[in-house]
Amino acid sequence: MKQLVLVIGSLYGGLAVILGAFGAHAFKKILPAEKLISFETGVKYQMYHALLLIAIGLFLEFQTSLEKSAAWSIILGTFIFSTSIYLLSFADHWGVNLKWLGPITPLGGLLMIVGWFLLAFYFLKRN
C-alpha cells in the first residue's frame, strides 16, 4: 500500500504539472476565462493532494484500516473531483452535455474531506 500511495501521489503530481502548463498556455486559447478558472482549481487540488499522498506515503505504514481508508479516500476523491472538473471545463468546447458530472464533483470533494478527517482521527488515536 505504501508504494501504491507514493506512485499515485507522484503520478498525480506529474499530471498536475502537465495539465497546469497546458492550462496556462494551450487551453487559454480555447477555453473561456470562467472555464479556465475551474480547470485551474482542479489542477490545484490535484497537486495539493498529490503532495499529501507523498507525505503520508513516506510517513505512514498503512497497517491499520484507518490509514488505508484515509489514503483511498484521498486517492479516489482527488480523481473524481479533479477529473470531473476537467471534463466539465471542456464540455462546451467539445459540444457534449456533461452536466450530469456536476453532482459528481462534490462527491470527490467529500471523499477528500473524509480522507483529511480520517488522518486527523488517526493522529489523535495514535498517542
Rank of each mutant, 00 (worst) to 15 (best):
S89H: 11
A24E: 11
L53K: 02
I18N: 07
T83V: 14
G108R: 01
I113L: 15
V114N: 00
G77E: 02
A71I: 01
L31P: 10
G20Y: 08
F121H: 09
G102C: 04
V17I: 15
L15R: 00
L98H: 06
L36K: 07
I85R: 07
G57H: 05
H93G: 03
W100K: 12
T105Q: 03
G102T: 14
T41C: 04
L6P: 10
S82L: 06
G42I: 06
F90R: 07
S73E: 05
A71F: 00
L110K: 04
L58T: 12
K2L: 12
L111P: 03
F121R: 08
L6Y: 07
F90E: 03
P103T: 05
V96N: 08
L4R: 12
F121W: 14
V17Y: 08
Q3P: 08
F121E: 09
F79W: 09
Q3H: 13
E40C: 02
T83K: 01
W116G: 04
F22N: 05
E61N: 14
A33R: 10
A55N: 05
L119M: 15
L101Q: 09
T105W: 03
I37W: 00
L4K: 14
F22P: 06
L31N: 11
L110Q: 05
D92Q: 14
T78D: 00
T41Y: 11
L76Q: 01
L19D: 05
I75G: 02
I56A: 03
S84W: 02
Q3V: 14
V7F: 14
F81Q: 05
I75L: 08
T105V: 14
L58M: 15
M47A: 13
N127F: 11
L60P: 02
I18H: 09
M1V: 04
M112C: 14
F27Y: 12
I37P: 02
K125I: 05
A16P: 06
T105M: 08
I104G: 04
F79T: 00
K28F: 07
V17S: 10
Y86A: 07
L124K: 12
G9I: 07
